[in-house]
């Protein structure tokens, strides 16, 4: 007698619990796609630079005075964002609210400092391929940070409305993952434009 298989699972979670849910896969896939976008931007930089004649680097020794602290600022904001998510996980709503607020301010600060640095450049968008790559790569990153800031405001609001609990908070975790992503992207963009010239690229 052949037996018919039967799946009888017990005590299944209903909907997403913590980070366990299809939404986590969704945001991860989106991040892979956006990471690929940054990958291609950096590819464009390395390819154009490698095939360009000498003098392509408009700044053979890029000044790190603003860019390095700014990158560190964003890294720290990721730590703050982590801490904010912990506030939800550990049922400490004030911690979450403060954390998201501070992360927002740090992100806004990042953009402000970036703007200041851009204003001090001697070249503009259309000066050369190096300039175009510099501003457009930075600009694409800033656009991602801006989207992140909007997300932080919205998460702040929803937290204030007491939507979340340690179990029900997948959208918060997704938002924080996105924030980690733009931080890592920032480190990679910074390393490419500000550090590789010192290692000899494009000279």
């Amino acid at each position: 007698m052949v037996e018919a298989a039967l799946s009888k699972p017990e005590n299944l979670p209903v909907g997403p619990i913590g980070r366990h849910g299809v939404g986590w896969w969704g945001i991860s896939t989106l991040i892979v796609s956006e990471a690929a976008l940054f990958g291609y931007l950096l590819f464009a930089y390395f390819y154009t630079g490698a095939t360009a004649p000498a003098g392509w680097l408009l700044e053979p020794a890029p000044r790190l005075t603003l860019a390095l602290p700014n990158t560190i600022l964003l890294l720290l904001s990721s730590v703050v964002a982590w801490w904010a998510e912990q506030g939800i996980v550990k049922r400490r709503r004030p911690q979450a609210l403060i954390g998201f607020g501070v992360a927002f301010l740090m992100g806004a600060g990042f953009i402000a400092v970036q703007w200041l640095e851009w204003r001090s450049k001697t070249f503009s968008l259309g000066t050369s391929s190096y300039a175009s790559l510099y501003f457009v790569t930075g600009g694409v990153h800033i656009a991602h940070v801006l989207v992140g800031l909007v997300i932080l405001i919205v998460i702040f609001g929803w937290t204030a409305l007491d939507f979340f609990s340690p179990r029900r908070r997948l959208v918060v975790s997704a938002a924080v993952l996105y924030w980690y992503f733009i931080t890592i992207a920032s480190v990679l963009v910074f390393s490419t434009y500000y550090l590789t010239p010192y290692l000899g690229f494009g000279q």
Binding site: A44, T48, T51, W56, L125, G126, T127, S129, Y130, V136
Partner: peptide, 19 residues
Amino acid sequence: GTQFFDPAGGGQPLLWQHL
């Protein structure tokens, strides 16, 4: 007016083809 692909501005027509 960016110069990604215009050789006059240091751009690379082949960058388009690769991407």
